[in-house]
């Protein structure tokens, strides 16, 4: 898996950050899409409604914001929006998430092994 990752062409987020001709939404899209197409695990969720005609919808979404449930940032929210179904499967007993948190939790009274 490691080698595969290195070989792939990636957008460098550090470079994309301040390219003013690219909107912040596009920055994230480019940066993440690259990886989605390569089939790595992803927690992005913004694919529901703007998939169909990309650009047209994209700008509309920003303007038409009277609906509270629209995008994440649009209503200036502080809590992130999660895709509940995805999380449910990810964190179920045999979900894919568990390997991600292995070693991140100190268990029981084992006090100082890790750090």
């Amino acid at each position: 898996l490691k080698d595969y990752k290195i070989g792939r062409r990636k957008w460098d987020i550090g470079k994309l950050l301040y390219l003013d001709n690219i909107t912040p939404e596009d920055v994230i899209k480019r940066w993440r899409d690259e990886e989605i197409s390569n089939g790595s695990e992803e927690e992005e969720s913004g694919s529901e409604n703007e998939e169909d005609d990309d650009d047209g919808n994209f700008f509309k979404k920003l303007d038409n914001t009277s609906i509270l449930s629209a995008g994440t940032e649009v209503i200036d929210r502080s809590l992130p929006a999660y895709d509940q179904e995805e999380l449910k499967s990810k964190w179920s007993e045999e979900g894919s998430g568990l390997s991600l948190i292995r070693g991140r939790f100190l268990t029981g009274h084992a006090d100082d092994d890790e750090e």
Binding site: I13, G14, L16, L17, Y18, D20, P24, E25, V27, I28, W31, E43, T72, E73
Partner: peptide, 25 residues
């Protein structure tokens, strides 16, 4: 996961306010 549109926007707003740029590596 922390780095999203809002995050990029914030970094850009900071740049317009103070002219300071962040690095992400």
């Amino acid at each position: 996961g922390v780095i999203d549109e809002g995050f990029v926007r914030l970094l850009r707003d900071i740049k317009t306010m103070w002219g300071t740029e962040a690095r992400l590596k």
